[in-house]
Computed example of a mutant assay.
Amino acid sequence: MTPAVRIPEELSARVPVEQREPGLDRDAVRMLVSRGVEAAHHTFRELPRLLRAGDLLVVNTSATLAAAVDGWIGHARVVVHFSTRGDDGRWAVELREPDGRGTTRARAGGPAGTQVCLPGGGGLVLEEPLSGRLWWARVAGPDVPGLLREHGRPIRYAYTERDQPLSVYQTVFAVPSPDGSGSAEMPSAARPFTARLVAELVSRGVQFATVTLHTGVASAEVHEPPYPERFAVPEASARLINAAKAGGGRVVAVGTTAGRAVESAVGADGVVRARAGWTDLVVTPQRGVRVVDGLLTGLHEPEASHLLMLEAVAGREAIEQGYDAALQGRYLWHEFGDVHLVLP
């Protein structure tokens, strides 16, 4: 796809699939399957028969935070998106302007020293820029996890119809972090999984390996590469991934976040080792992939940096053909939309 391509507004998924029709569950979304330049149409419930015994799915266990909080700069209302907790206790935040349809208008941050009043008597001070839209901020008053639990709501954008409860943004794999860390936005590729589907996959010999990558705030205006994010690949998962590769199984990352975590933990020898910390890795076609054989992901806008990882896995021509098929097939985009399985 080229940057000139635009996704028709009517192809934005405005509500989750289970709210569109009574009796549907999360796994009722459609799934485009790409093998090279060949694309086929399936439903997500067919995933177990598209994988085989010995394949391994890598899933992100990061829980989604209620990361949007109302605040005030003087008398002007703003919305604070809490993005990433730093090692020094500060938070990367984004300020946005409310418009009644989600918090879609980015607000210029700064200058340094700008104070934002928060609910419950707390506040934050912008200290230094992290990017054009994100600032490192020092938070005073209630601890941020408590603030988000009491006053936060999930981040949403104008293409969705309404606010949703936090449970709608949690995947079946989500595990709350003891320190209150999590993802500012849902690792949405895993959203269609249900406990029933996981059980069926396991019964067919498909394995799961868990990793954690806490995603920051995406930009609805400028699709810049991701900034450093906290991740962890446990020893048990590293062993599972290496064993799957050695046994001829396919390692399929569920989401670019899981793929980024795994590719951040592989050495030049192709062996995955337990690792935790921060990653600034951007997987590009030039860098290539060293572990991931396939990718299950949502449908991304043409400018999104996530597409670089898809091209690294499958090649540009395959991704362009797949997206053409998704547009022609009227697939739905964004976090409540349909999914794309890219296989070798």
Rank of each mutant, 00 (worst) to 15 (best):
V175N: 03
A261F: 07
R107C: 05
E200N: 09
E303F: 06
I73T: 04
S83W: 05
V262F: 07
S181Y: 10
V198H: 06
P3W: 11
V37G: 12
T114S: 11
H214S: 10
G249L: 04
P302C: 14
L56V: 07
H81I: 12
W72V: 01
V342F: 08
E303P: 03
G89W: 00
L213Y: 01
L308P: 11
G121F: 01
Y159Q: 13
G120C: 03
A314C: 01
M186Q: 10
R138N: 12
V79K: 14
A184F: 00
R96F: 13
P22D: 11
R287Y: 14
G337L: 06
S62C: 10
E128L: 10
S62P: 01
G255C: 00
A53D: 03
V211P: 06
L24R: 13
T171W: 00
G54K: 05
L51Q: 08
R49N: 10
R101V: 06
A274R: 05
A184S: 09
R250T: 09
G54E: 02
Q207D: 15
A53Y: 02
H42D: 07
I155A: 05
L201E: 04
A258Y: 05
F193K: 05
D280Y: 05
R107S: 05
E18H: 09
T284Q: 02
A244N: 00
V29L: 03
G249P: 01
L299K: 14
T43P: 09
G322P: 08
H340K: 04
V289W: 11
T215D: 11
L295K: 04
V291M: 14
A40H: 13
A106K: 09
L240T: 02
G180I: 06
A112K: 00
A325R: 13
I241M: 02
M31C: 15
V15K: 01
G152E: 03
T160W: 12
